[in-house]
Simulated scan of single mutants.
Amino acid sequence: MKVSHYFEFEDHVTGGIHESVVHQRKMLDREGIEYTTEATLDADVLHCNLMGPRSVWYAKRASDRGIPVVAHTHVTAEDFGDSFRFTNALAKPLKPYLSRAYRLADALVCPSEYNRGVIEEYTDTPTTVISNGVDREKLAGFESLEDEYRERYDLSPPTVFLVGHVIKRKGLETFVDLARELPDIDFAWFGPLDLSLKGRETTRLIEESPENCTFTGFVDDIRGAFAAGDVFLFPTHEENEGIALLEAMTAGKAVVVRDIETFSWLDHDEDCLKVDPAAADDETEAFADAIRRLTDPTLRERLGSNAAARSESFSLDAIAERYRSLYESV
């Protein structure tokens, strides 16, 4: 069996989608599945990770030739907005485009049950849930970087942190407001800033953030983020899964998430703390209460340990065989 494992715009797309593709290819290697990263019809299966125009062209021709098509549903209109400049304007026409594109596939891969529920409003194409997974090898030895990264960014424990592109949708406003509300606690967001690609409101939030709120920009070794951080704060408004969250759990960090459907699989006060702003009079204060609770090292240790145990089922080794089963089924 040979797979055309194609990632359109591979040289330009970063963040979670890029990481997911890296994970997938590691899993195909683990399973001994032969694949090429080129879009080609000289394959038994065409697997498209991003349904751009070139992928759509190949998907149509693959169908004409009887070659099964698998497409990943990394992108939805729901999680496209509040990301980069112009994405809000593009989100509305994106849904009908994706509906047509996803219908070209014989099978869709959804990174979570939540994502599958969203996609069912786009098309009746059969779906399979396969997590993006977490690469435990990538995080190996992160503890050794603690002193270096705390000193580099002048961070004192317990540091509240987040990892990933700095975009409004991921809860940027909440992150900054919390830093302002809790001036004695250091907040650090590790990840590319790309201010030229950001909207005016996002740029303002970053530039007017308080002194205890650090935006590191790109870091050369992302393990340093998990070494320097103590509490992973993820107030995202919309997420298909969240690889950085899985990484934080794998690293044994206490986690605070917004109580949205994506994270329904997490258990409050067992492997995370969930904050439901709708149930509180003040969103910032509700998140602040959770952060204050986690200044207790005993609670951080308990939640972090439980999170690490929960993350084991998301390891690449635990997931890899699902791709073989999917390819064989189509």
Rank of each mutant, 00 (worst) to 15 (best):
E8K: 01
D11E: 15
V13W: 05
T14P: 02
H18P: 01
S20K: 13
Q24H: 04
Q24G: 00
M27A: 09
M27W: 03
L28G: 01
E34K: 01
E38T: 01
L41E: 04
L41M: 03
A43E: 12
N49R: 10
L50A: 12
G52A: 10
Y58K: 01
A59M: 05
D64E: 15
I67R: 01
D82A: 08
L90P: 01
P96D: 03
D106S: 14
P111R: 00
Y114S: 02
R116Q: 12
R116D: 13
I119F: 05
E121Q: 14
T123P: 11
T125G: 06
T127M: 07
N132W: 01
N132R: 03
G133P: 02
V134A: 15
D135G: 01
A140H: 11
E143F: 02
D147K: 14
E148V: 05
E148T: 12
Y149C: 07
D154H: 13
F161L: 13
F161P: 12
L162T: 15
V163P: 03
V163W: 04
R169W: 06
G171R: 00
D177K: 11
L178F: 12
A179M: 00
D186A: 06
W189V: 11
L195I: 11
S196W: 11
S196E: 15
L197P: 06
K198H: 12
E201F: 03
T202P: 07
L205Q: 11
P210Y: 11
V219Q: 03
I222L: 09
A227V: 10
A228T: 10
E238D: 14
E241M: 09
I243W: 01
A244P: 03
L246C: 03
A254Q: 08
V257M: 11
I260V: 08
E261W: 08
T262K: 06
T262N: 15
W265C: 07
L266A: 14
D267T: 15
K274W: 05
V275N: 02
T284P: 04
A286R: 00
I291F: 09
R292Y: 08
R292C: 03
D296H: 04
P297N: 05
T298M: 10
L299A: 14
L303D: 05
G304E: 02
S305I: 07
S315K: 01
D317A: 07
A318N: 13
E328A: 15
E328I: 05
V330W: 02
V330P: 10
